[in-house]
């Protein structure tokens, strides 16, 4: 059944001069699954993420979303297909209120953005949806604050709220817990997991810290030097000797270091 594949890449490649950052990657993400992409620094996962989210153009290869070729689709149109994405660096509208940030995210996928003669509050469905999303991510009490005034952890929640607001079927998340205090990480991961399970959404999550994705993931793809090294369930990945010998030790070593820092 082709419908069960939400996102697919065929021989996807990105070269920066002589450097091959993503090397002919074939990726298949099952609809409704939680799919993590992990790898050490320099494995090419962020480049792959930027290709999937259409902020970078690939050198060659194709990307399909629900069977449709989106390789050359303009960035602003992908949101209307139901693709939401967040980035490692918090990327909000700093001087607009928390509510307005989420409201704009809702408005983007609904009709009415060109009603320049009307007050924006007349778009009632958009406003209600924005309030509901703020409840969902736990920011309702801070709706009126400017986004820049939020602490880092809350900014990550706002970021998630902005992705959830248009109710996308595919969530692309690049290290959503980056910069969060250690104790907040499970909370956010649970929130993402709950949203995914309840809404039957597909999640593609790029992560450096393997520990974060072990519990939530259905499938893990391990990237190494721009290519796909292994793929399987969390148990299979941990047990995979190739993964282990290649660099799992390095990852866990890294993990140990960050835990000591925290």
């Amino acid at each position: 059944m082709p419908e069960t594949i939400a996102l697919e890449t065929r021989r996807l490649r990105k070269q920066f001069g002589g450097l091959v950052a993503v090397d002919d990657v074939d990726l298949r993400v099952q609809a409704g699954s939680f799919h993590a992409i992990i790898g050490p620094n320099g494995a090419g996962k962020t480049t792959l993420f930027n290709l999937l989210s259409r902020t970078l153009d690939p050198t060659s290869g194709q990307i399909y979303f629900k069977g449709r070729d989106i390789t050359r689709l303009p960035l602003h149109q992908t949101a209307h297909l139901g693709i939401g994405r967040s980035f490692q660096i918090t990327n909000v509208f700093p001087n607009l209120s928390v509510l307005e940030n989420v409201r704009l995210a809702c408005q983007a996928v609904q009709p009415g953005s060109f009603r320049f003669w009307e007050d924006h509050r007349r778009l009632k469905a958009v406003l209600e949806r924005a309030h509901a999303v703020l409840e969902q991510v736990g920011l309702a009490a801070r709706a009126a604050l400017p986004a820049r005034a939020l602490p880092q952890g809350d900014q990550r929640k706002l970021e998630l709220g902005m992705i959830l607001a248009p109710d996308p079927s595919l969530l692309l998340l690049d290290e959503p817990t980056a910069g969060m205090a250690g104790e907040q990480v499970p909370e956010l991961m649970e929130l993402i997991g709950a949203v995914q399970k309840r809404g039957g959404k597909t999640v593609v999550l790029v992560e450096h810290n393997m520990n974060v994705v072990m519990r939530a993931s259905d499938v893990i793809t391990v990237m190494h030097q721009g290519a796909r090294l292994a793929e399987g369930t969390p148990t299979e990945i941990t047990a995979n000797p190739a993964v282990q010998s290649a660099y799992l030790g390095e990852l866990y070593g890294d993990l140990g270091a960050t835990q000591e820092d925290a």
Binding site: T55, A79, N91, N95, L96, A108, V126
Partner: peptide, 22 residues
């Protein structure tokens, strides 16, 4: 208006406005 609010968003962070689908 909804249109003016998007203009504000562009001033704040055009890249993000684009990603949201504007």
């Amino acid at each position: 208006s909804p249109t003016g609010r998007v203009c504000n968003a562009i001033r704040e962070n055009e890249g993000r406005a684009l990603m949201l689908g504007y």
